[in-house]
Design a protein around this nucleic acid. Sequence first.
DNA 1: TCGCTACCTG
DNA 2: CAGGTAGCGA
Length: 409
Amino acid sequence: MSDLDPGHFLDRARALIREQNMMAEGDKPKRDGSRGKSQGPTSMHAEGKQLAETLKQELNTAMSQVVDTVVKVFAKPPRPVPQVFPPLQMPPDRFAVNGENPNFHTANQRLQCFGDVIIPNPLDTFASMQVHNSNDQTEALPLVVRKNSSDQTGSLPTPGGHHHHSLHPSPLSSAMGFSPPSFRHPFPLPLMGYPFQSPLGGPTGHYPGKDRSSPESLDLSRETTSLRTKMSSNHLSHHRSMSPTHPGNEGLSLSLIKSECGDLQDMSDISPYSGSTIQEGLSPNHLKKAKLMFFYTRYPSSNMLKMFFSDVKFNRCITSQLIKWFSNFREFYYIQMEKFARQSINDGVTGVEELSVSRDCELFRALNMHYNKANDFEVSLRPFRLFHTTKQLHSPYQATLYYEVRFKQ
DNA sequence: TCGCTACCTG
DNA sequence: CAGGTAGCGA
């Protein structure tokens, strides 16, 4: 779907902003299927050759850089987790190929953006590239970080203020290495699906992520194992062994294992998972958990739901309800994004790079109020940036512009 | 048909 | 947030 070619997100976002600045209201952003269309058969020949040459050169350069960085990374000291995301080994070029790869990229960035998740990131070397290729980001990053009691050291976020360094290392700083073991994330981020890649059941074509070879399917078994492990460990704080078959995930899992840290208890509280009881229906706690989960995956697969709500006896009804919840979450979320984007445009923002979301802005408040009302989780103070482009839906009623929020790099 | 989604409505 | 509708793919 050229529509979602991540390599063009930024451009398209900018174009959109320009468009919206100038255009009359009814003018809808066009699908850019026109990209790459040749002007004519004649010019195609010469240009084609030149293009091919250029591409070759570019690819060579890119590949060299990738190799260099990868070598550098792996030359670094302790690298407990060589490969968490196999796809991430791919040269950045791949990221821009289609709608499936951006997800890997995204997953990686996600990790990097999580200050309190210390997950050795095999790809942090790519951080710099990601920074520069930020337009490849197609996925909103998690907005929530678990409330941290032990390490907060009073540097509580103030509007406009900035985080505790350790809480929100920049992607680059995270490249330094590992995570303090004291930090753990309530959700196994890398285990989550990515919004655009795993629509439940049949992608209806409204969304780009229709590939079945997505990370989810690629790593489902492994993820399942890890996930279960993690979930269990949530209540078996001693647990630290990984699935024997997936030792590569150990570092990852370790970072997710429950500790004595009080703050982690928050998640346990949120998680209705009680180890033994299987509930018939969904409780308010389940809703709470679902909301939090939403920030990690906006399109959870049914398998994910089953895993995350392992204390719920799933049936068609429960599944539907959960799916409906996520649908409602998305609705609210996108409405807020759109509202914010439009407001920004009205405020004179002319480019995506000018957009930022601070703690005291309406968007933040709305989202926090909706998804984190009780402030169970501390939301990253790092300003995040309204990022990407539009997603035109099939709706006959309106072409809604969808925006996503991402952390500012 | 079934399952999932966006969208609309209350 | 739930109910409902319509569209879409399997």
